[in-house]
């Protein structure tokens, strides 16, 4: 079974960290994983995305033309990658920054007010953790526990950030669980 996801947004939103944590969580569950980043040359603020492929067997292509899941953190990345999601696929979007829906009725769309949730948690930088929690709850590609462990490992030298990221992961997951996936 091969699953794939593209995390897309702009540089500085923590996209690469999301991909690395997901790959790390998959690895800890004994799965194969590949994480492939792609970004424009600007150090900050350019477009950025990463592709994660998870499989029980060896991973062939680390690239995906038609992803089964897209996690879009802002408007331009949805416009760029939204049309490529395969029919029947899933798009998770940061509804706080993407007010206009994508005109597709052949994919499942879940809007998560991730920026608002992060603001409520008092740390605008944890939008990526909110969306990652939402992704895990919506896809069950890995367990939330594996992701939480990977986040703790990632933040072992900045442990003061662990609690807020744990809360952010749970908030994202809870949002998906408690809302009937709304077609926005």
């Amino acid at each position: 079974m091969r699953t794939d996801v593209i995390f897309a947004g702009i540089g500085g939103q923590g996209l690469m960290t999301m991909g690395q944590i997901l790959a790390s969580a998959a690895l800890s569950e004994g799965k194969q994983a590949s994480y492939l980043p792609s970004y424009s040359p600007e150090v900050r603020g350019g477009w950025a995305n990463c592709t994660v492929v998870i499989s029980e067997n060896s991973i062939g292509s680390p690239t995906v033309g038609e992803p089964s899941v897209l996690v879009a953190l802002e408007r331009t990345s949805l416009a760029k990658h939204g049309p490529t999601v395969k029919p029947g696929g899933l798009i998770l979007l940061n509804a706080s920054l993407i007010p206009e829906p994508l005109q597709r009725d052949d994919v499942r769309l879940i809007g998560v007010p991730a920026t608002e949730i992060a603001d409520e948690l008092g740390n605008p930088h944890v939008v990526n953790s909110v969306m990652l929690g939402a992704y895990v709850a919506a896809t069950e590609a890995v367990t939330l526990g594996s992701v939480a462990d990977a986040v703790r490992e990632q933040l072992r030298s900045r442990f003061h950030l662990i609690d807020v990221n744990m809360t952010a992961l749970r908030s994202g997951a809870d949002f998906v669980a408690s809302h009937t996936p709304e077609v926005v």
Binding site: Q20, A23, L27, Q32, A33, S34, Y35, L36, P37, S38, I59, P62
Partner: peptide
């Protein structure tokens, strides 16, 4: 470049 940047086990 892609192989240099990507992560795998």
């Amino acid at each position: 470049a892609a192989l240099g940047q990507m992560m795998e086990p």
